[in-house]
Design a protein around this nucleic acid. Structure first.
Lengths: 173, 173
DNA sequence: TACTCTTTTGTTATGTTATAACATACCTAT
DNA sequence: ATAGGTATGTTATAACATAACAAAAGAGTA
């Protein structure tokens, strides 16, 4: 299967794609995975996942909480953190360490560490899986006798559309 | 110059090295760099850097604050965060995003992003600079039209000594 | 020296992120 | 129906970080 959502081009396309498709695909995939594993994607967990998939920019736990609280007055920090724990454990979302925020996983079929390109301008985070990056890290760790449990790769910078736009804006100055 | 401190072997050597040398070397290097740049390594900043270099495990800002407060009753969060800002700006320490903590920089001569191997057992973080990792990330970003500003690479796992020790402990079970 | 400008530090308050601990409700299988 | 596990509600607090303004300390100059 080729997941059509959340590659770098889509992630950084700034509304130039049908985001409803991203959300639907992600929720359907999540439901399927949970069923297969006997895990329960409860309404609350599903709702949190849906809120995370509202955009391609990582979302903070308290942003989720505020959104959740609109329809669910009893919501408190543990409500959202417990849902996030579940989603993280099943590889349905990733935590972006450098932002203390969470983003939907583009490839939830198997749990994995992610590599992320994070645009400082539009805030979107694209998940990439470069085997060369992965291999280079694993190789270096092995050389040093270090056993890898989890890799975090987060690259801050500017996505192509934002570069273009900023350059445009610069012409007038 | 070859910096003898804080390579993976030293970092993960668990007291099997003269740590006083690490600290002295780091402080001397920091002093030299600041002088060269016309930056002021004030007693407070120097003290914070020294506290960070007490060990090879990343230290939280509030741990630093508690240590600082023993000899400096007026110390408050901004005291330590401002010192950290200075040290970060001059590349004398790194922030470990996945731990919200700070560690001394092994190669402060030029400001740079770091790659870290972080042992989940002993807590030590070794700074590595693998050009292949760096190149692989840059190459992938370039392919996607993404301009890199800062790379974060943090690998959680087990260092060699901890693996050995845990295996030893396992024999009895 | 006295003045002034800049940098650094002190101080108080608050914002933001995350978890502990215990109570309640809800499924599910016998 | 009921016991045992899983999920959620609820209150409180821990841990991490910054805003805003005041005071002090350094550096250059008249």
């Amino acid at each position: 299967m080729t997941t059509a959502f959340n590659n770098a081009a889509t992630t950084f396309s700034h509304g130039g794609h049908d985001h409803g498709t991203c959300v639907e695909t992600a929720l359907a995939a999540a439901a399927g995975i949970c069923t297969k594993r006997g895990a329960r994607l409860t309404p609350l967990r599903r709702r949190v996942l849906e809120l995370i998939w509202r955009g391609h920019a990582p979302v903070g736990a308290y942003d989720l909480l505020r959104a959740l609280a609109k329809k669910q007055p009893g919501a408190a920090p543990p409500t959202v953190y417990r849902a996030l724990d579940f989603l993280l454990a099943h590889g349905l979302v990733h935590r972006i360490e450098s932002l203390n925020a969470f983003v939907g996983c583009a490839h939830p079929q198997q749990v994995h560490g992610g590599q992320f390109l994070i645009c400082s301008d539009c805030g979107a985070a694209a998940e990439v899986h470069d085997p060369r990056v992965d291999a280079a890290i694993s190789r270096r760790a092995a050389e040093l006798g270090f056993t890898v449990r989890h890799k975090t790769v987060e690259v801050q910078g500017l996505c192509a559309p934002c570069q273009d736009r900023l350059q445009e804006a610069g012409h007038g100055n």
